[in-house]
Simulated scan of single mutants.
Amino acid sequence: MRQIVLDTETTGLSADSGDRIIEIGCVELVGRKLTGNNKHFYLNPERDSHEDALKVHGISNEFLKDKPKFAAVADELLDYLQGAEIIIHNAPFDVSFLNKELELIGREPIRHCVAKITDSLMMAKEMFPGKRNSLDALCDRLEVDNSGRTLHGALLDAELLADVYINLTRGQNSLMIDVGSSSQEGSDSVPQIDLSGFELPLLAANEQELADHEKLLVDIDKSSKGKTVWRVLNA
C-alpha cells in the first residue's frame, strides 16, 4: 500500500472557528522507501493568519494573496491521496482542517478518499509514554537531522515525519547482526555482518491470510461488544 506522510500549516488553531489551510505538504512512501513523488501546495486562505500562527510558520499574508484557493487544487490532491494510508502527526488537527476545506466545496470527508489514517503522535505516545513526543523531540530521540527546521513548513515537516515514522516502525536500531556469542572469553571483538546492502523483500499477505485476519478482528470486536479501537476510529 502507498503511504503518504502529510502535514498542513494553517491560519490558526480552529477550523470550526473559520481558520483555513495555507500550505499542504505530502511525501510518498512505497515499501517503506521514499519515492520522490511528493506534492506541495501554498493556498490562499481568503483571510489573514493569526499573529501567533505567523510566528510558527512565517508565511506572510501578502505572499499567499496570489496563490490558488483550496478548490483549485482539491481534485489534484484527492487523486494523489486516493487509496493510500495517510500518516499525520496529531492527525485530528490536520484532518479537521482538511474536512472543513472539503465541506466548504461540497465534498466528502477525507476518510472517503483514503484507505487509512495513521496518527504518528499516538504511536509515539505508546512507544515513549510520559516523554515529549513533538516532531522536534522525536527527531532528537530517533537521530533524524532537523537542523534546517527554524520555522514550521508543511513539506519540510512531512519529510522529517517520514524519516521519524520509518524509525518508529523499523523494529530495530541497526542492520548489523552479531555473529557468535559476545560472552566468549578472550575475544577482542565480535564479527558482524552488515545487512545494509541487502534488498529486503516486502511480503504482502495473500487473500486467505487477509480473510483470516479480518475474521480474527471481527471475533475480537464481538467479544469487546464493538469497542475495539479500530472500529471506533473507522466510525
Rank of each mutant, 00 (worst) to 15 (best):
I117L: 00
D66I: 05
E51C: 14
A74W: 06
N99H: 14
R47D: 03
D119Q: 00
L102G: 02
D79M: 08
I110M: 02
E76G: 09
K65V: 07
L64E: 10
D94C: 06
P45T: 04
E101M: 06
P92Y: 14
H40R: 08
S60F: 08
T118M: 01
V95M: 13
T118Q: 02
G83W: 13
T35H: 12
D48E: 11
N61P: 03
Y42Q: 03
P92G: 07
G31M: 08
S49E: 08
K69T: 14
G58C: 11
S96D: 13
C26Y: 01
Q82D: 07
L102K: 02
H89I: 12
I110T: 00
K65Y: 07
V27I: 07
C26A: 15
D48L: 14
L43Y: 04
F70Y: 09
E108V: 09
A71K: 11
A124E: 02
N44T: 03
L29A: 04
H112L: 05
N38Q: 04
C113Q: 07
A72F: 08
H112C: 10
G83C: 14
P68D: 09
E51R: 12
V95S: 13
G36H: 04
D48W: 06
A91E: 05
E101S: 06
N37H: 14
V27Y: 01
E108T: 14
D52E: 15
K69R: 15
V27N: 03
C26H: 01
N38S: 09
L78Y: 07
Y42I: 01
P45R: 09
E62S: 08
R32I: 14
G58W: 07
L77E: 09
K39W: 04
N44K: 06
Q82I: 06
I87R: 12
L77Q: 12
D75A: 12
A72M: 09
A84I: 09
H50V: 04
M122G: 03
V56L: 12
E85A: 15
F70D: 11
P45A: 04
C26P: 00
L29K: 05
